[in-house]
Simulated assay, not measured.
Amino acid sequence: TDRNRTSPFAFTGNKFEFRAVGSAANCAGPMTTINTIMAETLKKFKGEVDAVIEKGEKKEVALMQIIQKYIVESKAVLFEGDGYSEEWAKEAEKRGLGNVKTTPLALDAFVTEQAKQLFTNNSIYSIPELEARHDIMLEAYVKKVQIEARVMGDLASTLILPAAVKYQNDIIKNIVGLKEVGLPESAYANQKQILEVLSEHINVIADNVEKMIEARKVANEIDSMRKKAIAYCDDVKGKYFDIIRYHVDKLELMVDDNYWPLPKYRELLFLR
């Protein structure tokens, strides 16, 4: 747990709260898991308290002993700072807590031996049901990243790059015109510099879109759904999404508004 306002999944005294759940998300799965963990813990708690009572301790003493034991055992997850900070990531590592950073690897939690024991002992899911859910969620992840990659490639190739090339041609015509009227190179030095930067962004985008398409083709040939999800995460999304996005953002700041085919960031807040 951590501070209430900095947790997407806050524990607020006597309950957990989900914050800003996406429209495509469903809280039922996490709630099922939390309730199952709670049920398992209460069964374990009662068993341990009963064992202490059988040794001759009073119920109140037994309760306090086991509660104290649980507090000590759970100390590693207690944190009152900013759960989004680098400080917490370092502190969590120091405490020996896991920090799984990608969805395909995080989904493995469904099929660990600990998870299988938890859900089967409480008659919530059978092992085949857990494995099926794991496979379905991996497939859903693959399809989402696949769609995002295809849309990103299409937007870059059919909207962004053509607009940038048109603007590039305008600058070239401007430079040629200034040369033809006999002006010195200093008169169009800035235009040449803009042209160089523009060309670099165009080339990087085009090159990485092509590489991303090839990476998708390789990932699509993988039979194992888990390995395919990891490939889409690491080799498609991880390698190409950010770099394409970065250079498109740079072009947005350079290309004439009249050529840019999509709303620019400032236009999402202010009218032209």
Rank of each mutant, 00 (worst) to 15 (best):
E57V: 01
I37A: 14
V197I: 14
D256F: 03
K250L: 15
E48T: 01
I136P: 00
T103K: 05
G177R: 05
R272H: 15
D108T: 07
T36V: 02
K59L: 07
D235G: 11
I244F: 11
I244A: 05
G81K: 08
N4W: 10
A28P: 00
T112H: 12
V142M: 08
I222D: 02
N26M: 04
G29H: 15
K166H: 07
R266P: 02
G22Q: 11
D50L: 09
A140H: 15
D207E: 10
K46H: 01
M152P: 02
G22L: 08
M31T: 13
S157A: 09
V52F: 01
V248Y: 01
E185L: 02
D154E: 12
E210A: 15
P128E: 14
I124Y: 03
D82Q: 08
I213V: 06
T36C: 15
Y167S: 07
M31Q: 07
E129G: 05
K58W: 01
T41Y: 08
L130V: 12
T12K: 12
N169E: 13
D135N: 15
A28D: 10
Q146Y: 07
G238L: 13
V204S: 07
V248N: 06
F270C: 10
K75I: 02
R266C: 04
V21W: 03
L268A: 05
I194Q: 09
D249L: 03
V72W: 07
